[in-house]
């Protein structure tokens, strides 16, 4: 806690000094400052489409810290929550491609959200230059201790109708759970919550019997024994939860994880992109960032921007096929 406070104070101090030096430049109305010859030409704004304090926000702040050091300018993180991050992403995608504006991308926005909203509202990677991939965050299905459910098998055998909490419409939690239930032929009531924490609390109080939430959120409760982990949805076992089987091992074709990457508006100059890629590399190599990943139970997936585009587009296609095959509609639940 204290560490975080001092870090924020430092960051805001850095931002203030940077702004002070900028203030001499004059007005910002009409046309804007068109001096973008060199990068960076001032503080780089890092937009996050999620609320402050959530896992996405924390990742952005952890990376921004290292990048700011490498680039030598302040990187203030700006939260613009809304529509799973679509609002923030659309906004940044429409900005000038000078590298002064970055956005943290959640894979679910590209791969899953399009399954839940109208085609014209979906976000596509075509409008963005992906700088680099960052990490993988796994979903885990947990059951309340009172429900007596201890494995996926118990779900299929359950005689009473169970309720299943998700973390919202168009999220990986919803997709993974819907696919698993469809493949296991389990009937249940789907109850959407607005984020992970209430969905988990509801399981702890047996308000719903099962929820699928992100591992980082569920781990303390799993360790405390207040909820029972059933299955993780990553393609391989998660290093932080090695004794829990994956859905694929259990015989279900449900490879769903949350991935995160950094992107900028399309059309960056080669030098700017290189500078940004280098700064991300420097940031993720730092020990503080590595221990951040460990403490928040994130698996590093530091791949290039091009790899991110191919992998995410492949996943989007796969999810589309699976939902059609099992006749799942994410929007009407």
């Amino acid at each position: 806690m204290k560490q975080k406070i001092t870090r924020r104070v430092m960051l805001s101090l850095a931002a203030t000094t940077a702004a002070l030096s900028l203030a001499a430049c004059g007005g910002n109305v009409g046309g804007g400052s068109a001096d973008g010859a060199t990068f960076p030409s001032g503080p780089v704004t890092f937009t996050v489409g999620q609320a402050p304090g959530g896992s996405t926000d924390l990742i952005a702040r952890a990376v921004a810290e290292g990048m700011a050091e490498k680039l030598g300018v302040a990187i203030p993180v700006v939260n613009k929550p809304g529509a799973n991050g679509a609002l923030a992403t659309e906004e940044v995608a429409a900005m000038k491609a000078d590298g002064q504006n970055l956005v943290l991308l959640n894979a679910s926005l590209i791969t899953i959200t399009p399954l839940a909203v109208a085609a014209d509202e979906a976000v596509s990677l075509d409008k963005l230059d992906v700088i680099a991939g960052l990490s993988q965050d796994d979903y885990v299905m947990v059951a309340s201790t009172k429900s007596g459910v201890k494995s996926v098998e118990d779900l299929t055998k359950s005689t009473s109708k169970l309720s299943f909490g998700t973390t919202g419409v168009g999220t990986g939690s919803q997709l993974a759970q819907a696919l698993l239930l469809a493949q296991a032929k389990v009937e249940g009531t789907i109850v959407p919550f607005d984020s992970g924490s209430p969905a988990l609390t509801a399981v702890m109080g047996n308000q719903v019997q099962v929820s699928t939430v992100q591992l980082g959120e569920a781990k303390p409760q799993i360790d405390a024994g207040t909820v029972t982990p059933l299955v993780v949805f990553s393609s391989e076992r998660n290093e932080f939860l090695p004794e829990v089987p994956t859905a694929i091992e259990a015989g279900y074709d449900v490879p769903v994880s949350q991935y995160r990457a950094i992107a900028a508006p399309k059309g960056l100059s080669a030098e700017t992109k290189t500078a940004l890629v280098e700064s991300v590399k420097a940031a993720v190599a730092k020990d503080t960032y590595k221990s951040f990943n460990e403490s928040t139970l994130l698996t590093p997936k530091e791949i290039s921007g091009e790899e991110v585009v191919t992998e995410w587009n492949a996943l989007a296609a796969k999810y589309k096929k699976l939902t059609e095959q099992y006749n799942i509609s994410l929007a009407s639940n």
């Binding site: 940077a18 702004a19 002070l20 900028l22 203030a23 007005g27 910002n28 109305v29």
Partner: peptide, 13 residues
């Protein structure tokens, strides 16, 4: 707002 806080309020000077 401008000099100390560095906000992006539209400004002339």
């Amino acid at each position: 707002f401008i000099a100390a806080l560095g906000t992006t309020i539209p400004r002339l000077f």
